[in-house]
Nucleic acid binder design. Structure first.
Lengths: 154, 154
DNA sequence: TTATTTGCAAAGTCTTTGCAAGCAG
DNA sequence: CTGCTTGCAAAGACTTTGCAAATAA
């Protein structure tokens, strides 16, 4: 079975890196690969990625993970998400709507994060691009409120 | 002139606190007041609030600020926002659409945050409430991409 | 070759926590 | 009174940074 090229391939990475004067390194390849291989496992933190690396007996250091996540976000390959749980989390910024387009419901009481698979933001995105000269690559939507359990518990 | 009751009043605070077994304290009052008085100054961090308190010669400690912001968010009086700049920020969760309903455009390169005054999310919010049993109090929308300057600079 | 990148450890920042004293209800 | 709250300082968690060695182009 070939690698998962529908999500992201290394040619894209190499291009985006050299466009901006960065270099392709085994570490950056490996870290991106982790996101491609774990695309089901949403919003991973630096520590999550580092943990996966250690399972693979990789020698990549934690600081390198932080630097790579930062860089891949700047290139628009990853997206940084924040759930207020104290650490930055990242997802592939894939063009596949099935993966890309979901929202997060965050319970104010128990802090649970629920995913909601529906988007409907294309129109708004277009409106904003037209009015603001801002080139949108991705978006992040969070709804705050009370989950089913915590509504009852009040 | 009376206090700014259109944004939030202390009766609401007292009610929400006692509903959940918390107490009304001068510190909590004062911290909420800062958000009401500075409603123009969006997304304040704990440090920002603490700075304002020190200007007022208040004796409130930083730990108390953190605890109050946390509590006011849990009560749905404030909303926590994260711009990835390393600290949590907060806004009043007012029902006034003029203040409540805006989105954030975040530049992946220069990290600039631009506010966009338009919402159009009511419909989506309703859809989600119906489908998910989640009671929504507020939302936060961020668009990631490249600002005007950074598009040209590429 | 040469500027970028890495790994390590140390430092930095933001936030939380333990505890005794102080208060609101 | 009684349990919640505060302020302080210490601890904790996550992230960044300095630097010499290694490496991609």
């Amino acid at each position: 079975m070939s690698e998962n090229h529908q999500l992201f391939n290394l040619k894209d990475l190499r291009e985006k890196l050299s466009e901006r004067g960065y270099k392709m390194t085994p570490q950056r390849k490996e870290i991106l690969k982790i996101f491609v291989e774990n695309s089901d496992r949403h919003h991973m933190s630096a520590e999550d990625v580092y943990g996966i690396l250690r399972e693979k007996d990789s020698e990549i250091g934690l600081a390198t993970v932080y630097r790579a996540l930062d860089l891949l976000s700047e290139l628009g390959i990853l997206v940084q998400i924040d759930f207020g749980d104290g650490c930055a989390r990242y997802e592939l910024n894939t063009a596949d709507p099935k993966i890309h387009h979901h929202h997060h419901l965050i319970c104010l009481k128990c802090k649970k994060v629920i995913e909601f698979e529906e988007d409907l933001l294309d129109e708004l995105e277009e409106t904003i691009e037209n009015k603001s000269d801002f080139k949108i690559l991705n978006h992040e939507v969070k709804f705050f409120g009370y989950c089913k359990d915590c509504q009852q518990a009040r």
